[in-house]
Amino acid sequence: SLEELLKLARHALRHGEEIHVLDRVITDEHEIKRLIEELERLI
């Protein structure tokens, strides 16, 4: 769900981890922040 993805993204950002989204691995902090902003808009 989007909520789950948002939780994962926030966790990854906090802990400096990578996040796997739709067969992509996002490691860049700015990309993760952008993902979080997009998800928050959708929810």
Rank of each mutant, 00 (worst) to 15 (best):
S1F: 14
S1A: 13
S1C: 10
S1Q: 12
L2A: 06
L2R: 04
L2G: 01
E3A: 09
E3Q: 10
E4C: 06
E4F: 11
E4T: 10
E4Q: 12
L5N: 01
L5T: 04
L5W: 09
L5V: 05
L6I: 06
L6G: 00
K7A: 15
K7Y: 08
K7C: 05
L8W: 07
L8I: 10
L8N: 08
L8R: 14
L8G: 04
L8Y: 08
A9Y: 12
A9V: 09
A9E: 00
A9D: 00
R10T: 05
R10E: 09
H11W: 08
H11M: 06
H11V: 05
H11R: 10
H11I: 07
H11Q: 10
A12K: 04
A12G: 05
A12P: 00
A12C: 04
A12N: 02
R14S: 14
R14V: 13
R14W: 12
R14F: 15
R14G: 08
H15A: 10
H15M: 11
G16N: 10
G16E: 03
G16L: 06
G16I: 03
E17S: 13
E17C: 09
E17W: 10
E17V: 14
E18C: 09
E18F: 09
E18K: 12
E18W: 07
E18R: 08
I19G: 01
I19L: 15
I19V: 13
H20N: 08
H20M: 12
H20S: 09
H20R: 15
H20D: 04
V21E: 02
V21D: 03
L22P: 05
L22T: 07
L22M: 13
L22A: 13
D23Q: 06
D23K: 02
D23L: 04
D23H: 06
D23C: 04
R24Q: 08
R24C: 04
R24T: 07
R24N: 06
V25A: 06
V25I: 13
V25P: 05
V25M: 07
V25Y: 07
V25L: 09
I26F: 15
I26N: 01
I26Y: 15
T27D: 07
T27Q: 10
T27K: 14
D28I: 06
D28P: 02
D28E: 12
D28H: 09
D28G: 15
E29W: 12
E29R: 15
E29T: 13
E29F: 13
H30N: 14
H30W: 15
H30E: 13
H30Q: 14
E31K: 06
E31T: 08
E31I: 07
E31S: 08
E31Y: 05
E31P: 02
I32R: 01
I32W: 02
I32S: 01
K33P: 01
K33T: 09
K33R: 15
K33M: 15
K33Q: 11
K33G: 07
R34D: 10
R34L: 14
R34P: 01
R34F: 09
R34I: 12
R34E: 15
L35N: 00
L35E: 01
L35M: 07
L35Q: 01
I36M: 03
I36D: 00
I36R: 01
E37H: 13
E37A: 15
E38M: 14
E38R: 12
E38N: 11
E38D: 11
L39W: 06
E40F: 05
E40K: 06
E40N: 04
E40I: 10
R41V: 07
R41N: 08
L42A: 09
L42I: 10
I43K: 02
I43V: 07
I43M: 06
I43T: 04
